[in-house]
């Protein structure tokens, strides 16, 4: 049981960075960006390949950020300059990345056998077990990135990006090129997602070309769980709620698996949960209407 909890905690912390990326597009920019399904694998692929080639695992992680930003740039250019709808732009990038990721890895599954990772290095340095080191390092990274995002979205550029998701019309009237702010937001989002992918590869000890499937739904589920638990309050609280949501999601999954749900049904379970959570506002109005007519309305 203790192992299950620790595992849920470390997975949640690592995936919370990916959730921050999803938050930037889905909530801040008001764009559903599906490229993340490809970029999370891209991060894992780049990280595993570079480490396989002998590059330092920290440096490999930093390069994941750059690779993710590049993928975000592609989606952004497709959407803003070529006027392809955002959803389709993301899908195109996602599909293209599948081939790109295979090219980077050379195989469908690239293991990191006996290669030191950031987690084993931190564990060795501090004399911690791998599980504790993973929790410590990913926790520090998640919190650090949350603070960095809080700072960034408070700056002049960050404010313009937030406003773009809110009211692009007004932003243009204030002299800001909304193409640029959208592209910047997509680059930042995908950089975080790829970074998270790199951490996942180092944690699980391999990169797999299939690992991104359903990532967007996991991100959304974590985001919504966080919002339900902490509410939509101050920006810093919302960023922290993403971390808590990602951990709770992993705990819920661990719980239903222990209760006997087959692991193959996980994605169906997650999809239904997210569909229910997203339709909650609509369901509430429908219930309210039914309630009103039951009380004697026409």
């Amino acid at each position: 049981m203790e192992y299950v909890l620790l595992n849920a905690l470390s997975l949640g912390l690592i995936w919370s960075i990916m959730t921050m990326g999803v938050y930037i597009t889905y909530r801040v920019l008001d764009v559903a960006d599906l490229s993340v399904e490809g970029t999370i694998t891209l991060g894992a692929a780049v990280c595993a390949r570079l480490m396989d080639l002998g590059l330092n695992p920290y440096l490999s992680l930093l390069l994941c950020l750059a690779a993710g930003a590049l993928a975000g740039l592609v989606t952004g250019l497709l959407h803003t300059k070529l006027r392809i709808p955002a959803l389709l732009s993301g899908i195109l990038t996602m599909i293209a990345l599948y081939s790109v990721n295979l090219k980077i890895m050379g195989v469908a599954n690239l293991p990191l056998l006996r290669i030191p990772t950031v987690f084993s290095m931190v564990g060795g340095l501090l004399g911690l077990s791998k599980a504790l080191a993973t929790i410590l390092l990913s926790g520090v990274l998640a919190l650090g990135l949350a603070f960095a995002l809080y700072w960034f979205f408070g700056t002049q550029i960050g404010s313009a990006i937030r406003a773009t998701g809110n009211n692009p019309h007004m932003v243009r009237a204030q002299g800001v090129n909304t193409d640029t702010t959208l592209i910047l937001g997509l680059m930042l989002s995908n950089a975080l997602v790829a970074f998270s992918g790199g951490l996942i590869a180092q944690d699980q000890g391999f990169a797999d070309v299939q690992m991104g499937i359903g990532a967007i739904v996991i991100g959304l589920a974590s985001l919504i769980i966080g919002e339900v638990v902490l509410g939509q309050r101050h920006f810093m609280a919302r960023l922290i709620s993403l971390i808590i949501g990602a951990i709770l999601y992993r705990l819920i999954i661990a719980m239903v698996l222990r209760m006997g749900m087959p692991a193959d049904d996980l994605k169906l379970f997650t999809a239904i949960t997210v569909a229910l959570a997203l339709s909650l506002p609509r369901l509430q109005t429908l219930w309210a209407k039914n309630g009103a007519s039951a009380r004697g309305g026409k």
Partner: peptide, 28 residues
């Protein structure tokens, strides 16, 4: 149409104060 609803009054004004000027990483 003229304001960003989910941002504060002062944040909206700050966006307008920089109209036509380059925006950087200074606090909003």
């Amino acid at each position: 149409m003229g304001t960003a609803a989910d941002m504060e009054i002062q944040e909206n004004l700050a966006l307008a104060a920089l109209r036509g000027k380059p925006r950087g990483l200074a606090w909003g």
